[in-house]
Write a protein that binds this DNA or RNA. Structure first.
Ligand code: FES
Ligand code: FES
Lengths: 144, 144
DNA sequence: TATAAATAGGATAATTTTATCCGAAATAAA
DNA sequence: TTTATTTCGGATAAAATTATCCTATTTATA
């Protein structure tokens, strides 16, 4: 469904959000440990998220990755997925036709678009704060 | 969403179904042309579908691929997806945790499982005959 | 039986995705 | 200003997916 890069990006963002709520910056090393991902690869994805203005980075001693507290509840899962995997999952044809076009639909178009828009809604209606709270309350987990 | 192999497998199966309804066997060459896919790679996928007992192959002169007419309406998309991409899409965790477990859910589990089961229902309730008829009536298309 | 036509399957190559490594640049604190 | 720490970014490697090629095997027909 999502690429590995995207899975790591989502989990990393949640972990950063949790820590930023407490005013703590985190390093790729800590993040990779907490989300059980390859460190250097995770660092690359963090760079992408910084470039997409979803998270902030602070270089140098006492630096690390963080998210503005006031932004946490405004960052939607869809933004992260979009930054890493692009919009193919929302707009692309499920059977790989060049474009998903109502006028020239593939065999599964009518049924597929329903599932796809369900997914889109889900991603657009889920923000980092909700996800961070669930982790903090022990209702959900970032690894294993 | 689906692998390229799976996209080709679905489209190939539909094309075979259309032709089998008319008692015609088709070759990888014809199939690849009609679904706009790489021929040799498509042939490999056809072999997988044969091994999974979803389509039949007849070797030698006047051979080709076909589907028993009476089976066409009983073959569900889910069988094809399962044969090629496995069941990760139905049963796997959306964020890549080792197992999707209600007792140890990832942050998106509750919302993701709804979308996933929607997709599963869609694939289980769509059979090759419906899809073949839509192509034949010009309501949908296999390429471009 | 010989021949032509067709799938089966192994070997290999190209591409994309995933992952690692290392030095450069930036920054806070001593 | 020096040092330690940390992200940035380029180069490279490994693994998985996608794609190609060639030969073997099977089979209907002449
Ligand atoms: S054309 Fe294939 S999903 Fe819309
Ligand atoms: S645990 Fe992640 S989808 Fe169920």
């Amino acid at each position: 469904m999502f690429s590995k890069a995207c899975e790591y990006g989502i989990k990393a963002s949640i972990f950063i959000a949790i820590n930023s709520r407490d005013g703590r910056r985190v390093s790729p090393k800590e993040i990779a440990k907490e989300i059980d991902s390859p460190q250097a690869f995770t660092a690359k994805i963090l760079q992408d998220l910084v470039r997409a203005n979803i998270i902030n980075s602070v270089k140098g001693a006492y630096g690390g990755f963080e998210i503005d507290k006031k932004d946490i509840s405004n960052i939607k899962l869809s933004q992260i997925v979009n930054a890493i995997d692009g919009d193919k999952i929302y707009n692309g044809c499920g059977l790989g036709l060049h474009t998903c076009d109502e006028e020239h639909p593939c065999p599964v178009h009518d049924k597929f678009k329903i599932v796809r828009s369900e997914l889109k809604n889900m991603l657009e209606n889920t923000n980092l704060e909700q996800l961070a709270l669930d982790i903090q309350s022990g209702a959900s987990f970032l690894k294993m």
